[in-house]
Amino acid sequence: MDVFMKGLSKAKEGVVAAAEKTKQGVAEAAGKTKEGVLYVGSKTKEGVVHGVATVAEKTKEQVTNVGGAVVTGVTAVAQKTVEGAGSIAAATGFVKKDQLGKNEEGAPQEGILEDMPVDPDNEAYEMPSEEGYQDYEPEA
């Protein structure tokens, strides 16, 4: 019985440690998101679009440190934060509304985080759909 109880105690310690790591990862992701939003706020009209992409990228980098179902929630929060940063930029006159959601080359930025393969159960990952990809044929 002692062996059984000791095993359960060790398992509990492992769960607590994993929860603490997840909590730490979420806190880091939130900190990076805040950094990115402050970065966007300090940019001029020309830099705002690039700044919004930076927020998304920093958040995406930190999301990889967070495991399990938390990833889905962090990704949703990050996307809403990026959308909010863009709205703030438009409201303050840093950028025109028609410039939001495009990178410096004018290509749409939507789907940055949505296409990231995420499995809350950590069982399997699927690649994003290939609808947006084109076949590449090298020139002879």
Rank of each mutant, 00 (worst) to 15 (best):
N65E: 08
K10I: 13
N65V: 11
V16P: 01
A17H: 02
D119W: 14
V48L: 10
P138E: 08
A11Y: 14
G132V: 02
E131R: 02
G31Y: 08
E104C: 00
E126W: 09
D119P: 09
G68E: 02
D98E: 06
G93H: 06
Q79C: 13
V16C: 07
K58R: 01
K43V: 14
A11L: 07
V16F: 13
A56H: 12
T81L: 04
K32P: 01
A29C: 15
P120E: 07
A85M: 14
Q62W: 05
V77W: 15
A89G: 08
P128G: 06
K43G: 02
N122Y: 11
E20H: 14
K80P: 03
G84S: 13
D119Q: 13
V37A: 12
K102V: 11
A140W: 12
L8T: 00
V95D: 12
V16M: 14
K6C: 05
A69I: 14
P120N: 05
A29H: 05
G106S: 10
P108W: 03
V48N: 01
V15I: 15
A140P: 15
G84I: 14
V16D: 01
V40P: 00
D135N: 14
P128F: 10
T75S: 04
V48A: 05
T59H: 02
M127W: 08
E131W: 05
K34I: 10
Q24W: 13
M127H: 09
E131A: 02
K60H: 10
T75C: 10
Q62T: 08
H50D: 07
D2V: 02
L8I: 01
T44N: 02
F94P: 08
V37W: 08
K43R: 06
G51R: 06
G25W: 08
A53R: 09
L113M: 05
E130A: 11
V16H: 10
K12L: 13
E139I: 13
P117I: 10
S129R: 07
K34H: 09
P138R: 07
T75N: 09
K97E: 11
L8S: 00
G132K: 14
E83V: 01
F94I: 12
E123P: 01
K58I: 13
G84E: 08
G67N: 01
K102H: 09
K96V: 15
F4S: 00
S42P: 01
T44L: 05
K6D: 06
G41H: 02
Y133I: 13
Q99L: 02
V55K: 02
V77S: 02
V55T: 03
L100M: 05
G86I: 11
D2Y: 12
G36V: 12
T92K: 12
K21D: 01
S87Y: 08
A124E: 10
E28R: 07
V55L: 09
L100W: 08
T64P: 06
Y136F: 14
T59K: 02
E35M: 04
T54F: 15
K10R: 05
T54V: 14
E110Y: 10
A17S: 10
K97W: 12
E137H: 04
N103A: 12
E104A: 07
Y39G: 02
Y125N: 11
T59A: 12
V3S: 04
